[in-house]
Amino acid sequence: MLEFSILLPALLNGLTIGAVYALVALGLTLIYGVLHIINFAHGSMLMLALYGVFFLHALFGIDPYVSLLIVPPALFVLGYALQRGVIGRASHGKDENILLVTLGLAIVMDNLALYFWKADTRTIDTPYGFDTVDLGIATIAVPKAVAFVAALLICCALWLLMARTDLCKAIRALAKERQGAQLVGINVPHLFAMSFGIGAACVGAAACLLLPSFYVAPDVGQVFVLIAFTVVVLGGMGSFAGALIGGMIIGVTESIGGLFLGESLGQLGIFVIFIAVLLFRPTGLLGHRA
């Protein structure tokens, strides 16, 4: 019989990881929902953002949470430029070409990072890094609690943004009916790039929340990209609420799986869910059939 006192912290831990996964996946699902492309470079953008947060802290002593004001906008610019300059020009009418180009971009980013910053795993020290909060039933580390709350807040903010602003009304119109949107004067390439940029900014925010309790290395993107895909596929491609729920489910799966099967096999559960959802319910939990 497994002790409740072990299971509960694992569950909480899973939920906090899940919130960050959700934030990463939110960007991916936004990009998919609007552009109908699968961004394979998503994990690598997260890796670059993590390095951004790391170096801001290491060189200028900027706290990761202060970086929330710097890194997401920078990622927005990167995303906008990539979509406008490279990805948007690559399709030649075939979805596979987008997948290949984003794969190529991921390879370039990962290996340039490896070249410039070496394979070392880097972490940062913050004064609150080892603090914990006591929730009565279990204690969790402060950075994880902050990540959980902030990720939820950002999800809500993004949802509000998408529901309320003109820009995002246009983006949603574009997602639903591209030609119609074009006819009423919506600048399609600009809005595509805006969507990509917002998706990238989500990744930037995730990086700021993640680094105090995580590490950065050149291959960290590869770990996250598959998890993000799993979350998005599980929740339903293009669904915000789906990304949030999917993130939590995957976070808990990883945490509980790791408890029973050990660190390396724990990830197996994620891929098994991924394959099973793709095969048996490709629309995900909350997605609609295309």
């Binding site: 490279v86 020009r89 690559a90 030649h92 075939k94 070409n97 290949l100 180009v101 794969l103 190529g104 971009l105 991921a106 390879i107 370039v108 990962d110 290996n111 340039l112 990072a113 490896l114 070249y115 070496k118 394979a119 050149p218």
Partner: peptide
Amino acid sequence: DAVGLNLALYGMVLVAMVLFLP
């Protein structure tokens, strides 16, 4: 013989191929 540089180049070749020579 720097680690990573070769693969980064392959990635650039892939992007360039899809962009210009699909």
